[in-house]
Amino acid sequence: MKKAVSILLLISCFMSYTNCMTYAAAGKRNTVIKTGIKKDVKQEVPERKKYTPLVIEDEIADEVKEQSKNRKRTAQQPSVIEDEAVYTITKEEAVKKKKQKNYKKELIADEKVVLTEENKKFKRPLYTGKIKTENGLEVVLKPVSKIKTGSTSIKLKNKENTDNYKLALPEIGDQVAFRVVKNVEKDGKIIIPKNTIVYAQVGEVAPRAMGGAPAEITIENFKMMDKKGNLIPLDGKISSSGYSLSFWIGLAELATTPFLIGFAVPVLRLLPGGQAVITPRKNYVIYY
């Protein structure tokens, strides 16, 4: 037993010694590697030129010396400047300050919120951390009618005038109808028959802009009615963008610069891109 204990003690001492040495080695920085530095080697250093500053004669120096000798030095007293803003606070003023009310925040009311029935049904999504890895069954759709982006002007009455405002169409939240093109089957059973109508909402509309930027539209929140009359949500979004003229505007600018010296640039940049369209001629896919 004594031998075993002594061996254990020796091993622990050896481990502690090696631990200290490794930390000491890690703490060392800037280790210099010496490689055969020769001593007693004379280096040739060229002689530096001595710098001699230019001497500029001061013409007035002699006159100032004579004047300073003649001046009688008197004891300088500091000039007292009265500061009008400085005053001492009296006891009465200190008491008044304490009684003064602290700054109260006046809250401005926000605009009254107009809620539709669909807005009231909105539930704030909670983040669960679960990620969908599979999409589900494909549902092929076509819009019932053509959906196209555009713009209108609305007149709003102020106290004195009526102001015109531009609005992008379709507006956010507008309901849109789609029709199922093929039967959706699972295990030989038809879950969603052909020609069922699926309702959706317009999610976002980005109108077209100068510089050839196209309009964009996304449609989301797809829902359909079951045979029992229940609303079943469907996954997926449909997005569409118009044709982009930016690339061709860039090419046209490059091509016309040697002839028009860049005068075509401000004119070409005014051109907008195309409108976004969701046509019944095309099939769109979402998931069940």
């Binding site: 976002e204 980005a206 109108p207 077209r208 802009a209 100068m210 510089g211 050839g212 930027a213 196209p214 964009e216 982009s244 930016s246 690339f247 505007i249 860039g250 940049r269 891109g273």
Partner: peptide, 21 residues
Amino acid sequence: VFRRVAIGYSPRKYEVKADKK
């Protein structure tokens, strides 16, 4: 690539789009 070119030519439109997104 074409979207990047469009962003370069009309950055204001895509800035508003990014804010809404």
